[in-house]
Design a protein around this nucleic acid. Sequence first.
DNA 1: TTGCGTGCAAAGGTTTTGCATGGCA
DNA 2: TGCCATGCAAAACCTTTGCACGCAA
Lengths: 133, 133
Amino acid sequence: MATYITKQQKAVLACIEAHRDRCVSAAELADELRSRGERVGIATVYRQLEKLERHGHVHKVLTEEGAYYQYCAHDALGNCFLLKCEGCGRIVHVDCGQLIPLYRHLEQEHHFFINPRRTMLYGRCAVCREAEK
Amino acid sequence: MATYITKQQKAVLACIEAHRDRCVSAAELADELRSRGERVGIATVYRQLEKLERHGHVHKVLTEEGAYYQYCAHDALGNCFLLKCEGCGRIVHVDCGQLIPLYRHLEQEHHFFINPRRTMLYGRCAVCREAEK
DNA sequence: TTGCGTGCAAAGGTTTTGCATGGCA
DNA sequence: TGCCATGCAAAACCTTTGCACGCAA
């Protein structure tokens, strides 16, 4: 089964790669592609994102507002994880080795192997926390 | 604004409390209530779960298959978190203090305050990991 | 009796799917 | 030319909402 490389494929990848610093939804991607003049159907966007996720090129994170996707550079793996603020809804990408000992503990004591691409921690960012006081 | 205590309210709470060891979906709860002879509409189940979550009596976790809910005993807070196996789909509830130092680090260095009720880590359980080798 | 909570059905939103068509190799 | 990928629209799904009615207080 050969697989073709289409211009829609390249467009979706380029678009999500351009937003490597933040999470975007499938609808946002489709809108942006349209505004650039690239005509890509929403179904194709979903199909591409699914393939990219399967190959490890993007994170997929589930939120109250639907799924969000973020480009994932290979070399950032392992030490990166995602924080979502329940106040303002923003998703913060943190690169920090502090998770490593936890992962090791979970493997050794609880026999569970974390997938950092998928893992998202919920909480409140400093701004929202302050505003609520 | 007075608030009434209805028999549907009690039934939903009792049902999710009976499953305190695992996560259940709104549809599962509704089915189970129906099979017990309690007639509770799905909309009411959602409304109750939303209220219970707001009051901190249940966790709500987002999955590929929709939202899942789990009863949350107050004294289990802080040290508990959820692991979801991407292989078999099971959600494991882990009670372990290992997360505390991580939470403290995130607060002090990244100014982010984790909500353990909402946080779920993704990965693979020992069984699925073994099966894939 | 008052008005909150419920049930039903409809609406809403996101994601998936079927099928004819287009375009890559 | 062969056949995979796309686009469109419909379907599927989960969740929320509007409104009249039932029931707790």
